[in-house]
Nucleic acid binder design. Structure first.
Lengths: 336, 336
DNA sequence: GTTAGCACTCTAATAACACGAGTGCTAACA
DNA sequence: TGTTAGCACTCGTGTTATTAGAGTGCTAAC
């Protein structure tokens, strides 16, 4: 049995109705509202077929049909219409201008702001930082035995870590060491810097004498550069959806939102292009009834992060995919 | 009518029973379990008095009694027993050692970790930063037209802001300017620095020529230093309590948890000494059925932040107040 | 002042029931 | 051959009635 044009139209109508109503869709309602011009009996026959093919499910015998994840997948890849009106599109393009200005602002408020716009829980993932190239390094003395290592990358992103330094180094010598480091590290990626520092620690040359525990530094950098950050905004938004009226679900969802590693690996899957993960595709049990819609953004030379929203699987895909993509682009412009 | 010793004992028994059971406490149960050695009828009489005095409430005529906020307040100030066992006390003292090492770590994981220990939603407030004294200032060049202003304070806390600088300043001249700034600003509080910078901007002397928009800098600092940060951990914990089984309550709670300003002003009330805010005392509508238990911690010379937990009003006060105080002390030691 | 006894109140749980939305199937129709 | 009207059937939802039980307040006796 194949999915002909009429089946697709019916499926689309069911999905769009269900997204709005969160109620199993019956044949009678559909024949009246969808404008397909066929009777409920015909639709019933088609629905029976679609159910057999796995696109629809019935909560119980005398209920209407509910789209399956497979149906949403089909919808997203094959029959999703244009989502936004021109006005909404315009709004999205200029949305960040008055709200987010730089990377720091994005981290602090980005997720919140996106969630305000979309009314869905929002996620923001920082660009992968171990691939950033060092453009400049400086050591800033910070009281006895400590120095602030400031690493400026080619995208203008600044990473700093407080280091323990041995002995009584005055400002000038720290400054000199900083310049030396700067010369040697310039152009390397943060990952290479890390490896180099590990090398230094092993060989114990002139610099190693100065910075006690340079391996420590590398270790600290590893933590800082690998553990990219993800922020969450509008966590409460999910609670507007009756799917999460049950506390135990809400709890599982909220708990998972606090598991940074989990969120990072989720968002990492999506940093190349706009993408949609439906239900089980997320790979996260607590999100198995959720869909995640993401879009990448770029900072500087090809470093990409991602923004996204998460909601029940009956999320308005057409609308939201387009919106996220636009927001990602707007963000890229803003941050370059 | 006064609250005599027996009334107090009965009230205490009711409160402690209710905290555990979340069920209105009846006279019969109480006379059997509390070990007061009086009959249920006697207890009923006392309960009637306590109800009249506003310490107890009845959800309905044929239900047991529930403690009022007034009762909890009395309990906290007058009749709260020792909360922790020696083992728990020991655990609290050493709790942070393997988990949080510095201010940065506290911000990143402190709330999470406290919530794991207590099973309540946890809050961490950073020390007020406008009172910090500058011990050192440095300007770090960061690509064209920008410099990183690093301000090290006497508590070792580091604030940095990216500034726009005019013209083509090379590293050396920026370094020199940094040293000049450092000399002038040392020992001032961040607030004073801010005011000084505003003054510079107005007078336009040598330095003003160098740093374009120095008022801008002051403005940026204002944002950075005034808006102290608060982090939330274990938001989902509140959902374990049947008081929050209703979604609308959960939603209001979660939404308020994302309102940083609200949380900051809440925690600011409590940074002097360990404190307990019960229900309406929090001053926050969404928290009017919650209690907040906080304790201060110190970083360096008298700068205090606060940690806290938030739960339903039937939170185990005795246990939690002591625990928070200990954790605050442990944290102070760790961060000094 | 304390306690036993008792009538009364009110919630929560259970069961019975009617309603209605929706289905699948059959037979007639174009 | 595909479409549609009609109809019997299913099953969840909401309503109502009923009951059991916990707890109270009051009175009278101790």
């Amino acid at each position: 049995m194949d999915v002909d044009a009429r089946k697709l139209r019916i499926l689309q109508a069911i999905i769009e109705d269900y997204i709005l109503s969160n109620t199993p869709v019956g044949s009678r309602t559909l024949s009246k509202t969808s404008g397909l011009g066929v009777s409920s009996a015909t639709i019933r026959n088609e629905m029976a077929d679609l159910t057999e093919m796995g696109y629809l499910m019935q909560p119980h015998v005398s209920a209407g049909r509910v789209p399956s994840e497979k149906a949403y997948r089909l919808y997203v890849t094959r029959l999703m219409p244009e989502g936004l009106t021109d006005a909404e599109r315009e709004r999205a393009r200029t949305f960040f201008t008055s709200r987010v200005h730089d990377m720091e602002g994005l981290l602090a408020q980005g997720a919140e702001v996106i969630s305000e716009l979309t009314h869905y829980t929002a996620l923001v993932l920082t660009p992968r930082q171990s691939d950033l190239k060092v453009s400049r390094v400086q050591l800033v003395p910070v009281g006895e035995g400590r120095a602030l290592l400031v690493i400026v990358t080619d995208s203008g992103i600044i990473r700093d870590t407080v280091l323990k330094v041995s002995g009584r180094l005055d400002d000038t010598s720290l400054y000199t060491i900083g310049r030396m480091l700067s010369e040697r590290l310039q152009g390397l990626t943060l990952r290479q810097v890390r490896e180099l520092l590990y090398g230094y620690a092993a060989h114990s040359d002139a610099d190693a004498r100065v910075l006690s525990g340079i391996a420590d530094l590398a270790g600290q950098m590893e933590k800082q550069t690998e553990s990219d950050r993800v922020t969450v905004g509008g966590a409460h938004c999910i609670l507007y959806y009756p799917e999460y009226a049950e506390v135990s679900r809400a709890r599982a969802f909220m708990a998972t939102l606090e598991d940074r590693d989990c969120l990072i690996s989720l968002m990492r899957q999506c940093e190349r292009q706009p993408s949609v993960l439906i239900g089980a595709e997320t790979g996260i049990p607590a999100f198995s009834d959720c869909s995640v819609i993401t879009a990448p953004y770029r900072v500087g030379h090809g470093h990409t992060g991602a923004i996204g929203i998460i909601g029940p699987t009956r999320i308005p895909y057409a609308h939201m995919t387009e919106l996220m993509t636009l927001l990602g682009e707007a963000l890229s412009e803003m941050l370059s």
